[in-house]
Structures are given as structure tokens and as C-alpha cells.
Design a protein around this nucleic acid. Sequence first.
DNA 1: TTGAAAGCGTTACCAT
DNA 2: ATGGTAACGCTTTCAA
Lengths: 334, 334
Amino acid sequence: MGSSSGSEPRRVTIHDVARSAGVSRQTVSRALNGKDEIEVSTKQRVLDAARELGYRPSRFARGLVRQDTTTIGLVVPDLLNPFFTEVAAAALEAARARGWHVVVYDTADRAAEEIGTLQVIGTQVDAVVGYFSCSEDELDQFTRGMPMVLIDREPRTARFSAIRIDGEEGVRAAVAHLVGRGHTRIGMLDQVGRAAPSPRREWFTAAAAAHGVDAGLVAGAAQSADGGGAGLRALLAEHPEVTAVFTFNDIVAVGALREARRLGRSVPRDLAVIGFDGLALGALVEPPLSSVALDTRRLGALAIDQVGRLLTGAEPLEAADLVVRAELRLAGSA
Amino acid sequence: MGSSSGSEPRRVTIHDVARSAGVSRQTVSRALNGKDEIEVSTKQRVLDAARELGYRPSRFARGLVRQDTTTIGLVVPDLLNPFFTEVAAAALEAARARGWHVVVYDTADRAAEEIGTLQVIGTQVDAVVGYFSCSEDELDQFTRGMPMVLIDREPRTARFSAIRIDGEEGVRAAVAHLVGRGHTRIGMLDQVGRAAPSPRREWFTAAAAAHGVDAGLVAGAAQSADGGGAGLRALLAEHPEVTAVFTFNDIVAVGALREARRLGRSVPRDLAVIGFDGLALGALVEPPLSSVALDTRRLGALAIDQVGRLLTGAEPLEAADLVVRAELRLAGSA
DNA sequence: TTGAAAGCGTTACCAT
DNA sequence: ATGGTAACGCTTTCAA
């Protein structure tokens, strides 16, 4: 409205404060940074001037001269998926313990967003941790020599460090448990829309084979509760004989649980359900969800630990130590 | 081991690349920033040299000269609480649409962490959005003239902008609904450990009074599912006559739901439950949770919008526009 | 097409 | 106790 219009308001610099307080720039710097060698009255005068002018130091100028702030970029496909929330919270906590800042990017599960994020991230963080579905070439192209820790993805080159999720044993235990309960028709709700079969699917296949049960009762499910519900419907439509189901993750499992209820199937009596991830959410539904559980806090902490080593030039952890193993955690649903 | 030890590895600068490629610094800059005025062969040579040396531009130096990156600090008390996750996700989305970066800080619901966060944040972001429980003096002291948008908190001074959450009508509708269903003994599980009674409690009290029902049937509950369960037990122990309960938030409500089941009380028949927040989580439990729902996406977007106005000097929104109203959303639990 | 020089805003070092 | 000067690493004029 007239008065608020005009030219871009030039930034207030340390110079302006110095002039206003009638001192030099370094005196201002001293006052603002709580250095000793300054007279109390001078300090006060400077502080007043700074407040008066609304002065804020430029983080860029400051960062340039004292190179001591570390910022990590954390990339997740969907922060609203509780699994990624847990990982993010763990990473935030681990980073905070080191005094690092974490910029969070949600790629909305779209490869295009990943590239966009990487381009932007490349110039704004010191290292990157997170989930990516795009190719390693793309990954490398937009991040140059930046330290990178990939989660739940096996890199082909030594360019990237990675945290591996090993659910083989856990899934085998899950299948063993189901078989032990007399289930012989065990279905799986797998991830949908990815090219290769998921490792979880492969673990399931191997475990099923090991126990001599059919591993082919699989339907796809979008990674959401609704997706899990739809997936279960599809699975049961095609394979009505299924009495137990293992799901790609807990969100899908919770959706399946809800769908089973709607279909009038009692869990675990008519249908046993075992998820993957071990989310806190699993304890809130009825019946409580059995799951092949991951230690998400360890996962996040491990990723930050490794990226820190990469960043500081310390000895990085070896692949053998960069593994998070899942283990079966039984509750009411199976 | 031995070979990796030694002095701090000096940063590779644009100067090193220039020397290595046998060109000047600005030529390197041109090559790296994809400018036109450069010969293809030169560009290639520079790019090769840069890759060879593992060169990464300093974000500080770059930010200093082209002042075009905006970073928002987002402060939440507990990212694992789905409500804050939803708000954070919404804020991230809104910020990304503007090309802004968001640094997320989780204060673990501790005032001490808030101060620590503010001190650190003060020098690392351009503006702050979030939840704070510490005093306005402290808030101001550690953030100087930085644009700040407080969520769900009524500031006393004009120093801070704020997003107000107005649940008065929604809560009244909730109580009206319960009364309409014949409930006369309506309890509440309020927040615990805060000094003043929560606004949600006040809305409840007013609504109860308006309908002529007892507003004193209140128990405290920690903000978690377990807290909700314990709270419900305490409430029913003291007031066994309660047939309906309104909770501080959905997490608490979900815990109450679970506890009711354990106590053998069928919901909504023996006990009606209405939460607050309207989380996606509410649709996953059984029965689905009725809730006084907030539009968390709008909340996050509004906060980012306002902080953007503060940041760019545009006309800020007025208090009347900085309100998110909650409305009753009925599902199975009441 | 390339290079030299001038900042960007701050802090560190060395005078005074 | 205070000020001058020189970095910090980059991009943006302007000149060649």
C-alpha cells in the first residue's frame, strides 16, 4: 500500500552497524560474538545499534570464514509413511548429537523429484543420506564427489556407500512360524510398480521354497493402507485358498488387516498377517501386528555415522557393518 | 591406516581447478555453471579437471555472491507424533514449491532443546516456523530480528506471527453430537504437564456448559498411545459413570480406544470416543476414529506462506486469516 | 572466447 | 580495547 512499495530492501550489514555505533566492523563482530576484549559500554552500544537496525549476520559470510557447519541432506520418498518418519527422526537425532543440521527433502516417490532434489541439494549440503530409485549414473551426475549414503539399495560401484537391509533370516522365521501354525497357502502382497522383484519378495520365495510351500501366491499392492486393502482383495480373489499373508511392509499389512475385517475374516483365525518394518503403528491396531521388524533408530544412526566418516575422512565402516538385520516380532496377527 | 592419516585435507577450490586446467577462475565458473561464452574443448578440459580433483563449489561462497537461497527452520516437538509429521510434510511441500530448503529440528518436547535449537538455528536459517513452549523473551533473545511464525500459540507481542488453531466450534459440535446420542457423562483426557489448561480443555468446558453437562470429568494423559490408555484407566477409575470421552488429540484417543478394548468396553456402544487432529491414522484403527479434524496441509502451507511474506517484505496476512478451524469428522468411534 | 579486478559479509591476525 | 588489512571461495562486471 504505497508505503510498503519501493526498491528491494538492501541487507543490513555489519558495516551499517559499525557506522551507526561509531566503531569498526571487527568491534561489532566482537560484541556480537561475545568476545572478551571489548569494553562493556562499547559492547552495549553496538548491541543496541544492531537491534535498532535489525541486523542479522549473513550465514554465508560467516560460514565462509569459519568453516564449521555441517549440513546433511536427507532424502525420503514419503515422509508420511511412518517407516520413513521413523528413519528420519532417528537420523535427525543422530545428527543433532553431532551438532549437524539436516535438510529434509520429500521426493513424493517420484524419480523426477529425485533428480530435481539432487540438483538443488548438490549445492546446498555437505553430504546426502537417503532413498533413491533413479540410476547410479544420474545419482552421480548430480552429486559429483559428494559423500552419499544410500539406504536399502545395493550400489554397483564404490562411488556410493550403502546401508543394507537384510531381512532374509527374519522372513524365513516368519514363514517358519506360519508353517508351524499349519499354514500351507501363504500369500504375499509385494511392492508394485518397481521393475525387479523386491528383495523382500526374494526372501519370501526362498523361505517358502525352504519350507516346501507355494511361493507363487503373490499380488501387488501400492504402499499405503488402501493399497494393502485392495491388494488383499485381489490376492484372495485369485487365490481364495490363502490363509496367511506376508506383506511388503507394515502399512500394507495394516490395510490388509482392515480389509480382512471388512471381508468378515477374523485375524489371525481366518487369516494370519505378518508385515515388515516393525512400526510403532503396529501396536495400535487390532489385533497387534506381527512383523519382521527393523531397528529404524539404528538404521538412521548408522547412516549418519557412515556419512560422518565419509565427511571427515575417517575410516568408513565396511559393508559388513553397514547392515541392519530384521527379526520376527510376533504379536496378535499371526 | 597410515596412508589415511596426516594433515587436514585442504579444500579443493576453484583456483585449484583453474590452475590444473590451465585457465582462469572465471572460466572454471563459466564451465561449471553452464554459461554459453566458452569453447567446448575448454569447457570439457575444465570439467575433467574438476572431476579429477573432486572439486565441489563452496555453498557459502556461492551463497554469498548470489543471494538467492532461502532456508527455513522448522521446529517440531516430536516428529514421531503423526500430527507433527503431517504438518512437517505439508510445510516441506509448500517450501519445495517455492524452491526453499527446510531444516528440520526435533526438540523432543523439551524446553531446553528449544533454546539449544534456537541458538543454532539463529545462524543457519533465514526464518523459523514451528512449535515452541519457551517464553517469548527467550524466543526473541535467540532469534533476534528473524522472521518467526509460531504455530498453535498466541503471541503477546507483535514480534511474532502466529497460526491460530480454532477448535471451538468443532469441539462444540463434538459435544453436541455426544449429547444428541444420549451421553450425559462426557469425560476428557487432557494434556498433562502444561501449566495453564489447554485451549482444547477450555473449548470442551464451554461446550459442556452450553449443553448443561458436567465439564469436570477430566484426567490427564501423556501425549502418546500408552498415555491415552493410562489416562482412560485413570478417568474411569475416578468416574466410572463416564460413557463418552473427548481427548486432547488423536494419539491419545487411539490409546484410549485400545485400552477400552482391553477393559472389555465396546466402542462406541459402551464408550464413545472422539479425538482431536483428524489424523490419517484414525482411519486405520477399529473402529475408525471420530475426530475434531484439522487440515494439517493447510496449516503447514499457511505457516510457510506467512513466513514467506515476512521474508520478502510482502504484506503479511492478518491474524484473521492465520486461523485453521477444526471441524467434527464422524467415523465409527462415536 | 578469455582474463583481470571488484566485490559479497564476515572473522582472524596483527598492529596500535 | 580497538582498528586496519587480509583472507574465505565464488560470481559478476568490464576489458581485452
